[in-house]
Write a protein that binds this DNA or RNA. Structure first.
Length: 574
DNA sequence: GCCGTTTTCGGCCCGACTGTTTTCAGTCG
């Protein structure tokens, strides 16, 4: 269900890539890249904009606006077709190999007629690349290794896996003599939903021994680069880990640099240049005198650039710079502000911990309230019955008497059937404190049927939260086809919260959808969907998604006081 | 190709690492 923005961004990116391959002028492809990113991240649907509206998108000028219009109407534009005829798709595909950029791709194509990965691998194997200018036997070896590595692993991992690897490396790095400080940065710190490589930063006056230790850890399989201040390795599990070592005095500037995102860094460096300053990983300097202005903390650097501190989760160049300048950055919701988890399971259905164990574990989170929401009977394999559900409720009320500090809510996770109906009649549903309704079957309905199904479920006065709204599983199952804007509008209208399922392979809704839904006035429920005690810790990943979607605590029902939450759960009824 | 407190031309983020064309281009983040 891509928006036209995404289609246009993809086409412009392809054009930028092709330009970079044939390019004389390196700035032209960059202009198209920037425009593509601005369009992809633009909140409004392109098809709804007139020509002036398209021109108003940052980095879109007259020429690109005309091409955008052409893409919207025909799917392409003449200049793109010309380049496609000139540069085979396989040549662009070769630039996906690490270390193999547009220039090298063009050389092998022009000199040897190679226009695809398979041919490139064959040529490298036969030793036919080494005669070319800038190519050697070493280059051939790198190509073969890179292609082999790309085929062996899927490339990206879920955030919990990356967080685990980062934690294990950091623990060992902090134990290396001379390391004053070490932490993770990069997309992991920005809480991106999947992670391609783990970026680590360490502060030390003696980088040599730190690099020796890092490249020598026993789970390091391959050393991609080994420098005085920067090294890259691949772990045995196939994940790339980069380490940068800097002096403690430059911690803040280095943290900004290494956290990214790259587009965010480019923007603030441009701001620095306009102020007669220079920003790099060592600090903020006067451009002419090289006098140091700020470096020690991120806050110092941002302040001296005339900006408030910007949360890592917002640093994507999706409007946060403009908002910061205007003093309109959101106070994003934090883990500490969460008062409860509203979607969890026990061993009454498919959880692996008992009701008592889950409640006891939740209490250590210092939540004000906690909902147990086991599966409803229509998910037949869970063998739920009215009697079992009512017995659980009785047991929960007993547990409540023993733990007065945390209010226990009795709920259920309903199944949205193909027509939008749910388990149980209204009379039974009214007995629950909260209900989450989710799609667990019939994933392949048409967009129209799926959208109608979802909206009908939200119009049910006894449905409070839509669980994992798109049902995607990262790397395993695509999202269902929905008219999301229609769903968001209906959620806001009916007073139904949309879930941010914090479980790391779901993260559903995802960040950009959250941000769009917020424009419609939707409320959100950040839940762990925990099926075991340890899963309750996944709340942090849901918070990451919420922050990346620019949510404040007012947007998140689980951050509200209990009385306000209860009012919301009545869905407008008295 | 875009943009403007250097505003219609002349810039465009910045530095580390690799390989190799021993002074720098290509690539990456």
């Amino acid at each position: 269900m891509p928006r036209s923005n995404d289609d246009v961004a993809r086409v412009l990116t392809e054009f930028a890539d092709l330009l970079a391959i044939v390019a004389e002028d390196p700035f032209k492809p960059r202009a198209y890249e920037k425009a593509a990113r601005a369009i992809g991240g633009f909140p409004d649907e392109l098809l709804d904009l007139d020509d002036a509206g398209i021109r108003a998108i940052p980095n879109v000028g007259k020429s690109i606006a005309e091409k955008v219009r052409s893409v919207l109407e025909t799917g392409t534009f003449p200049e793109l077709e010309e380049l496609r005829a000139q540069v085979p798709a396989g040549v662009r595909a070769m630039t996906a190999i690490p270390g193999f950029g547009p220039k090298k791709a063009m050389v092998v194509y022009r000199e040897l007629g190679i226009d695809g990965l398979d041919q490139l691998v064959a040529a490298a194997r036969d030793g036919r690349l080494r005669g070319l200018k800038g190519f050697s036997a070493k280059t051939e070896q790198n190509v073969l290794q890179a292609v082999q590595r790309a085929s062996r692993d899927t490339g990206r991992v879920t955030i919990d896996v990356a967080m685990g690897v980062a934690g294990s490396f950091l623990e060992r790095l902090r134990a290396v003599p001379g390391v004053r400080r070490a932490d993770h940065a990069g997309s992991l710190r920005r809480m991106a939903e999947t992670i391609g490589d783990v970026d680590l930063l360490a502060a030390s006056e003696t980088p040599g021994p730190v690099m020796d230790a890092f490249t020598g850890f026993d789970d390091v399989d391959q050393i991609l680069a080994r420098g005085e201040t920067k090294s890259s390795v691949v772990t045995r599990s196939g994940l790339q880990v980069d380490l940068r070592v800097i002096r403690k005095e430059a911690w803040g500037a280095a943290m900004i640099y290494f956290t990214g995102s790259k587009p965010h860094n480019v923007r603030i460096r441009e701001m620095a240049v306009r102020k007669g300053l220079k920003l790099n990983e060592y600090g903020l300097f006067h451009a002419e005198t090289d006098e140091l202005i700020a470096a020690e903390t991120e806050r110092d650097v941002y302040e001296r650039l005339g900006l408030p501190f910007i949360e890592p989760t917002l640093r994507e160049d999706r409007g946060e710079i403009e908002a910061a300048i205007a003093g309109e950055l959101p106070q994003v919701v934090t883990l500490k502000q969460m008062r409860g988890d509203l979607h969890t399971h026990t061993d009454l259905t498919d959880g692996v911990a008992t009701l008592e164990q889950m409640v006891t574990a939740a209490a250590t989170k210092r939540y004000a309230y906690y909902a147990v929401t086991d599966h409803a009977p229509n998910l037949a394999m869970q063998r739920m019955t009215d009697e079992k559900m009512l017995a659980q409720r009785t047991k929960l009320r007993t547990l409540q008497d023993r733990s007065p500090r945390m209010t226990l809510l009795h709920g259920t996770e309903l199944n949205i059937d193909p027509d939008g109906g749910v388990d149980w009649p209204a009379s039974f549903l009214e007995g629950f404190d909260i209900t989450v309704a989710s799609i667990h079957s019939h994933f392949n309905q048409s967009r129209e049927a799926m959208t109608r199904r979802m909206i009908r479920a939200m119009e049910n006065p006894n449905v409070n939260v839509i669980g994992h709204p798109t049902t995607r599983k990262i790397g395993r199952r695509d999202p269902v086809d929905l008219d999301l804007d229609a769903v968001f509008e209906a959620a806001a209208r009916t007073g139904t919260a949309l879930e941010i399922d914090a479980y790391p392979d779901r993260l559903d809704l995802r960040d950009e959808h959250v941000r769009r839904a917020r424009h419609h006035g939707v409320r959100f429920s950040i839940d762990t969907d925990a099926h075991a005690v340890g899963h309750l810790d996944a709340m942090r990943y849901g918070i990451g998604v919420a922050q990346r979607g620019w949510l404040t605590k007012d947007d998140v029902i689980g951050a509200w006081p209990l009385t306000k939450l209860r009012r919301f759960l009545r869905k407008g009824a008295r």
